[in-house]
Design a protein around this nucleic acid. Structure first.
Length: 737
RNA sequence: GGGCGGUUAGCUCAGUUGGUUAGAGCGCCACAUUGACAUUGUGGAGGUCAUAGGUUCGAUUCCUGUACCGCCCACCA
């Protein structure tokens, strides 16, 4: 053995040994109990970050611990297509080539992104492997694999048949100039001055920058504790308008800031995100007044056909004429959302969207947590889950993103003449309009082949089908919310509904992930698991904290404090990095990257290495009297003491791991090996006359300690094992009782 | 604004049902190189456990208020 432990040489070699022997290939063994984890899939197009390392470390500890205990373990890896995020990265890439997504038809764009991801996904896979996780790569899954898409389609079809899917309006960031919607992250926020208009609304005065949307008002809102207006809450008021009187509900809602303006807000659910949310809370009518062409629609009476700017001017004049305009503040500064593409004003608009009824999902998904069928660690995170489930409203599942699983709904253009389509014609010109008009100028196949997006009306007729129906059918261009498909993750990775794997390994044992996605992801997995199989997909949920930068702040590119875990792997080794992260925090709280601990555990690896060297040195000069439990005639009290401490170490580590207290467990084994075995016992062995006996005990204690340490620092323990034991690989040995 | 968490040694953090001298890693000081390891060993200094009250025989631990800090969500019509 070299004088120093060299992780750079050892880690890849050890990794190869595990792989060659297929150590972590899951095996269906009816004589063993299964222990299953599915890996939360990292972005296929991304890089490994410290959060991934922590996740891999925790899950690997559990897998190796259970495997050594005799369970038939399976840990399934996968990567995520990361819908919107990847599309943004790809578009940046397009921009470098002077292009944008609007230069491609939908199918070509999808294919381009697919190829782009295929080129890059090897990076994350090899980075994952460098951390030494005991994953079964023969069962690797990508979130856009056919088996995933098929299962998602089947679920969707079933839900449609059971009446759990409906179409309704949903507010989106729509740009009338671009004829498309934008994600929140695609918006730019600009600060500018616009007049703030104070208009008379029955007994109130409301302040607004958007008087032209007043025809879409279906309520006014005040803060529920505002003494000035308390008496009106729940009542209906009559308001003099420009097209006759209108009746508005008065609602009390905390989204209103009583200190702003007059403390009374006009509520336009169809054209303001905030108002939309309030509208859903209070079941208000959604009345759209601006069309997809950006012009005021028929709901505005005589103003129909005017642009938003023209309409606003005219409405203001008419209000002034009628004496309904109280005052105008021309000095009002606010932020406005504009699209990133052309800098046009975003018009929040309601568009038809696919929704899932959650009413039947909620209770079972809530119950399994409350009655502890699914246990959440740490306990206090349970509150987040419970609140979310209680408040959950129907789930809008369509997204206007290309990179995802396309909703399998097909619209007949003959039956749905008012569908708005946007496509590239043969000359690559972008055409937008009603399909019934465009079909007169273009062939159906030209429209279909060049299709970028379509917007079908709320009541459009559609066929749900994986395959294209015969006839002039256009497929829905929206994709599923990524959480809709990833909610199936434990099912699809295990071959739901009818594979041997599924019957043996499902439900899984532990779901381990970052706490920030408990609401988006964990809740959806539980919902779909129960819906499709009657059983929640896992019995324990462990939520780890966020790894922050060394300065304690959240890592971000703009702050320049992002830590690349691979730098630490190459400098200190994967073992040291893993162990450092594990012992840096205990309770799933966020924590700053524990750099000092990583160094400390690098030193620890070297310490262990040298302990082994010392034992080997003794073995060269002494005949070892192998120590066996129960056979302790010749041993001393000090020997007995270290064996006793080993026993309580094993007990303590098991106990901590069962409670997901990884830091406690890693601390115990560290203290034991370094301070009990190395500092005390080895020094004592040096003084012994009967070296062979003491050496036997030392070897027993040390190798047993290696077993206990192995799940935490798999590489160095395996490397040492191969030098002092002939008994196969360490990971193939039994966990000490 | 709503929710969650934090405030313990110079730094980063543990502290499992309230109970004798409050712990670890790193850092610092002194000493040590006589079978492995300087990525080492031995010893040591260092904390009125944010703050004000309350419950209790007893509070870092439970309750309430206050002050900072962090995160998530929603965001100014």
């Amino acid at each position: 053995m070299e004088k120093k432990y060299d992780h750079k040489i050892q880690e890849p070699e050890i990794q190869k040994k595990w792989e060659e022997k297929g150590i972590f290939t899951g095996k269906i063994d009816k004589n063993k109990k299964p222990f299953t984890i599915v890996l939360p899939p990292p972005n296929a197009n991304g890089k490994l970050h410290t959060g991934h390392v922590l996740m891999l470390a925790i899950e690997d500890i559990l897998i190796r611990w259970k495997k050594m205990q005799g369970y038939s373990t399976l840990w399934v890896p996968g990567t995520d297509h990361a819908g919107f995020e990847t599309q943004v990265v790809f578009e940046r890439h397009l921009k470098e080539k002077g292009k944008s997504r609007f230069d491609y038809d939908r199918d070509s764009l999808y294919k381009e992104i697919w190829d782009f991801v295929q080129e890059n996904k090897g990076v994350i896979e090899s980075q994952i492997k460098s951390m030494g996780p005991g994953l079964d790569w023969t069962r690797y899954t990508f979130t856009l694999d056919d088996k995933v898409v098929d299962t998602v389609y089947e679920t969707f079809q079933r839900m449609v048949e059971e009446g759990m899917v409906y179409r309704d309006d949903y507010i989106v960031n729509y740009c009338p100039k671009c004829g498309t919607t934008f994600a929140d992250l695609e918006l730019r926020h600009v600060t500018r001055k616009d007049p703030l208009y104070y208009m008379k609304y029955g007994p109130f005065v409301v302040a607004t920058t958007r008087p032209e949307t007043k025809f879409g008002d279906t309520a006014v809102a005040v803060h529920p504790n505002d003494e000035r207006y308390k008496e009106y809450i729940g009542k209906e008021i009559e308001v003099e308008g420009l097209n006759g009187n209108l009746k508005l509900k008065v609602i009390g809602d905390t989204f209103v800031d009583p200190k702003f303006g007059t403390g009374v807000v006009k509520v336009t659910p169809a054209h303001d995100k905030n108002d939309y949310e309030a509208g859903r809370r209070h079941s208000l009518e959604i009345k759209s007044v601006i069309g997809l062409d950006g012009k005021l629609n028929e709901n505005t009476g005589p103003y129909v056909g005017l642009s938003v700017e023209e309409g606003r001017k005219k409405v203001v004049e008419d209000l002034q004429r009628k004496g309904l305009m109280i005052k105008i503040d021309y000095d009002y500064e606010h932020t406005v959302s504009v699209c990133y593409k052309g800098g046009h004003d975003i018009e929040p608009t309601v568009l038809p969207n696919w929704f899932i009824k959650v009413e039947n999902f909620k209770k079972p998904a809530l119950d399994v947590v409350i009655n502890k069928e699914v246990k959440i660690y740490p306990r206090w995170r349970e509150i987040t889950y419970v609140k979310w489930m209680e408040e959950m409203r129907d789930w809008p599942i369509s997204r206007q993103v290309v990179w995802g699983i396309r909703i399998p709904a097909w619209y007949s253009v003959e039956e749905n003449p008012s569908i708005q389509v946007t496509f590239l014609n043969k000359k690559k010109e972008r055409i937008t309009g009603k399909v019934s008009d465009l079909i007169k100028k273009y062939s159906f196949s030209e429209i279909e082949e060049g299709l970028q997006s379509l917007i079908a009306p709320k009541n459009a007729k559609s066929i749900i089908s994986k395959a294209r129906p015969n006839g002039n059918y256009l497929q829905e261009t929206d994709t599923f919310d990524t959480w809709f498909s990833s909610g199936h993750w434990p099912l699809v990775t295990l071959g739901y509904p009818n594979s041997d794997d599924f019957h043996y390994f499902y439900p899984t044992s532990v779901m381990e992930t970052g706490w920030e996605i408990i609401r988006f992801w964990v809740s959806r997995m539980i919902m779909f698991g129960i819906y499709l199989t009657g059983k929640p997909p896992f019995s324990d949920v462990y939520l780890h904290g966020l790894v922050r930068a060394i300065d304690g702040k959240k890592m971000s590119k703009s702050l320049g404090n992002v830590i690349d875990p691979l730098d630490y792997v190459s400098e200190y080794g994967a073992d040291a990095l893993r162990m450092g992260l594990i012992s840096g925090t205990a309770n799933g709280k966020d924590f700053a990257f524990p750099r000092d601990k990583v160094v400390a555990y690098r030193n620890f690896a070297n310490k262990l290495w040298n302990m082994a060297r010392f034992i080997l040195l003794l073995m060269e000069n002494n005949e070892v009297v192998e120590y066996k439990e129960g056979n302790d005639k010749n041993i001393t009290d000090v020997d007995k003491e270290i064996i006793q401490k080993l026993r309580s170490l094993i007990y303590g580590v098991n106990n901590s791991l069962e409670k997901f207290r990884f830091s406690d467990a890693s601390d115990l084994i560290y203290q034991f090996m370094w301070h009990e075995v190395a500092d005390n016992y080895i020094e004592y062995v040096k003084t012994r006359e009967d070296k062979g006996v003491a050496l036997g005990v030392l070897k027993y204690v040390f190798t047993t300690g290696l077993k206990v340490l192995h799940p935490f620092m798999p590489f160095v323990t395996e490397a040492i094992w191969s030098n002092i034991e002939t008994n196969g690989l360490l990971i193939e040995n039994r966990w000490p009782e």
